[in-house]
Structure formats: C-alpha cells, structure tokens
C-alpha cells in the first residue's frame, strides 16, 4: 500500500474523477476527506470508502468561500490530525462565447477553479510546512494548453492553475512539499455531458489517437503515482493524460 496512513483531502471528490481518486487513494491505505459542494453525494462516497474498510470523512465545502475552506481544514485536522495530500479537483465547466459571457460567469469560473486552488492551498500548506512534507496535486486541463471555443473562461482558469502550480512548487520545494498538475483530456464523466449530446460526447471520447476511452480511473492512476513516495523528485510539472490528443 503506497499511501498507508496518509491523510488525503480531495475537493470535488463526490463524483467523476474526484471520486475515482478518493477510492483509489483509499485502496492504497490513505484516510480520505471527501470534500464537495454536494454534501449528500460526498457522504455516499465516504460511506463507500468506509464499506471497503478504510477511514473516510465527508465535508460539504464551497472552495470559493474563505470561511467554508477554513471549516474544511478545521474539520480535517479535528478528525485526522494532519494532512499529507491535497487534491484540488473541484471545478466548474460553463459554456459561453466571449461576447455573450456575463461577468458573473467569468467570476464564478475563476473563483471556483483558480480561487479554490488558492484558498485550499493556503489553508493546508502551513500544516504541510510544519511537518516538512506534503503533496499537492491540482487538476488543470488540456484545454488550458490548446484552448476551446466557448470555454475561454475555463481555458484561462486551467492555464492559470498551471502557472499557480509552478510558482507554488518553487515556494514550497525547500519544505519538501511537491506541487504538480494533471491535465486530463475529455473523460467519460458527467461534466462534458452538461454541454454536449450523448452522441457528441461519445464521438469525442472515441476520436483520440489511442483507441482507449478515457475513464476517471485513467486520471486517478497518475495522481496516485504523484502522491506516492515514487514521485518524491517531481515538482512543478503539468502532466497530460489524454490518450494522445495533445502532446506538450
């Protein structure tokens, strides 16, 4: 078990990729805090983990709210006493052309996708610094590199996460904390189905160079690797997991 007795907080852990990460880390021996805006769904993932015989806690959180993130950190420390791994997976994916975009949608995207990274890191980094170890893994996106029409706010927020990760990696390297990003391609989750027909989603999933449908578990695997001791010399990187769709 690669993550035995580690404590991992996974924002956006109630569904899709976040849920796969939570279950994957639990199977590797970590205690999991499933942090999500959808409290009930977070509860059911935490129960799923407990049923497998592992420690888990569900916390309802809005990662764009300072007080809510403070509550997440306090609950985590009260329950498990420490944090070893922070996975910033919470995010939203709104659709709008630039000219039709409301300021509210722009702000919401950046507050949650980018601001959530900042607030969660700020809340958990002091404890990692004190113990001179920690792993932070943030979810960026291939769209942060290649852009996508009608998703300019999302693309900008994901590219910004990559810049944030690199800067934070430089800040925290001397304390033995690594900070990396994973950039998934289009995955077989609920998120892309919010804006596309089932046919469009399947067409995208099957049009990758590699004849392999990108599943949440495919994203979770590299994240488990980055969280493990095997990746102790890796920081400031943004690794693409996309069946060959885009090669940086």
């Amino acid at each position: 078990m690669r993550l035995k007795d580690k404590v991992a907080v996974i924002t956006g852990g109630a569904q899709g990729i976040g849920r796969a990460i939570a279950l994957g880390m639990a199977r590797e021996g970590a205690k999991i805090v499933v942090a999500d805006l959808q409290g009930e769904k977070a509860n059911s993932v935490a129960n799923e983990i407990k049923a497998l015989g592992h420690g888990a806690l569900a916390v309802e959180v809005n990662v764009a709210s300072e007080s809510s993130v403070k509550h997440l950190a306090k609950t985590t420390f009260d329950c498990f006493g420490r944090i070893d791994i922070l996975v910033n997976d919470a995010g939203i994916y709104l659709k709008s052309s630039v000219v039709d975009m409301t300021e509210a949608d722009w702000d919401r995207t950046h507050d949650i996708n980018l601001g959530g990274n900042f607030l969660c890191c700020r809340a958990f980094v002091p404890a990692m610094r004190a113990q001179k170890s920690g792993r932070i893994i943030s979810m960026a996106s291939g769209i942060g590199y290649y852009g996508m029409k009608q998703f300019s706010h999302y693309a900008a927020s994901k590219a910004a996460i990559i810049g944030f990760v690199k800067a934070l990696a430089r800040e925290l390297g001397p304390d033995g904390i690594t900070v990396n990003a994973i950039c998934p391609g289009s995955a077989n989750t609920a998120m892309p189905r919010g804006h596309r027909t089932e046919e469009e989603v399947m067409q995208r999933l099957h049009s990758t160079p590699l004849p392999h449908v990108l599943e949440p578990e495919d994203i979770a695997g590299p994240i488990l690797f980055l969280a493990s001791d095997a990746a102790s010399y890796i920081t400031g990187q943004a690794y693409n997991v996309n069946c060959g769709t885009y090669m940086v």
């Binding site: 990696a169 430089r170 390297g173 690594t178 391609g185 160079p209 590699l210 392999h212 990108l214 599943e215 495919d218 994203i219 695997g221 590299p222 010399y233 890796i234 920081t235 400031g236 990187q237 690794y239 693409n240 997991v241 996309n242 069946c243 060959g244 090669m247 940086v248």
Partner: peptide
C-alpha cells in the same frame, strides 16, 4: 494506460 506522446520531466523542479 491513457498516456502517450508525453514528456515527463523528473528534475526536482
């Protein structure tokens, strides 16, 4: 299994 064509830098940052 879903990773191809990528470059993995392992360099301490």
């Amino acid at each position: 299994a879903a990773i191809t064509g990528q470059t993995f830098h392992v360099n301490g940052g």
